[in-house]
Design a protein around this nucleic acid. Structure first.
Lengths: 158, 158
DNA sequence: GACACAATACTCGGATACACCTTGTCCGAGTCCACTAGG
DNA sequence: CCTAGTGGACTCGGACAAGGTGTATCCGAGTATTGTGTC
């Protein structure tokens, strides 16, 4: 999986802790995690295209959460970065070679291998969609109660 | 996900339909699906290393199933091709930047983001481990009752 | 006719190139702030 | 002192390279077959 997923989730959590009053520029977020600013900007653009963030240009611009954290699921963040298509792509090799020489088989029915793999991937997607970013943030603060306050202080929003 | 997973599953199913009496060379399996023989051989080697197949060299050599299909799960095939490590790799970016300047935080506890992603991936692995190749083969034959016979005929094992 | 032997053809296995995608970087368009000059 | 105008700096956004992993290929090591020559 792409490394940008981790960056995107952490940045969304940070934006949630800061509150949505003022936008946060990429340079600040990149400094907060020691990430390459231009590349992080690319990932944040993907989140904007997915409707999870809103971007405002200009000198005091930056990124803001489009929705509160409890309205964003992990599935949405992963889909925004990784793309909408499934990890397992069925290329229908059952139709080639030996399969091509047996026209009595009906290939209308879905490939059993693809069905089995898709079933597992559906479980993965369901588990991702069942977790909101607010729950992840709450789990993080459970081990560090004053985490949000520390983040606000570091970003000068104390 | 790597394309070799699809190839590996289909080849295992074919070996199961043929029965484990005689080994099947890579060239024959590759012809059965119109795949590049040398590269398919590489994938089958991975299955041998994982203990799913056994290889026999020599002129009448090839690959055989090390276990019957109902003793092989989809999870084992995926792990054999894709490798044992998880798709989501936590790089601990929470410790860098702003996290590095707040030493009061204890980083012994696992990262909440990593925990959430791992939970979803565990659901995926459970769904894969719950399905045996015998079940996949049965699902395929449910739509094409004489599929195994057709495969045996094509491979000259009628 | 039976047996020993060597040549042979065919198989796996690992070492070796090629291609695409992820990662990383750069520069331009747009926007808001701040300073300045005039009323 | 207040206000309109302008310069500037900072931001996002997309276009442009570099590296790494997956994809594909080739050649060598090893083995059972098969044909031949001899007893």
């Amino acid at each position: 999986m792409s490394e940008g997923v981790e960056w995107a989730v952490h940045c969304c959590l940070t934006l949630g802790w800061l509150g949505d009053d003022r936008p946060v520029p990429t340079s600040r977020l990149a400094a907060g995690y020691e990430l390459p600013p231009a590349y992080l900007n690319k990932q944040l653009q993907a989140l904007v295209r997915a409707g999870l963030l809103t971007s405002t240009p200009g000198v005091r611009g930056g990124f803001r959460l489009a929705r509160p954290l409890d309205k964003i699921t992990l599935m949405e963040v992963v889909a925004a970065i990784e793309g909408p298509d499934d990890a397992f792509q069925c290329t229908e090799i059952r139709r080639r070679g030996s399969g091509a020489e047996s026209p009595e088989r009906n290939f209308r029915t879905p490939c059993a291998v693809s069905t089995a793999m898709r079933k597992a991937e559906l479980a993965w997607r369901r588990a991702l969609a069942a977790q909101t970013l607010a729950e992840v943030a709450a789990a993080a603060e459970r081990h560090a109660p004053n985490l949000g306050e520390g983040v606000r202080r570091w970003y000068g929003r104390g």
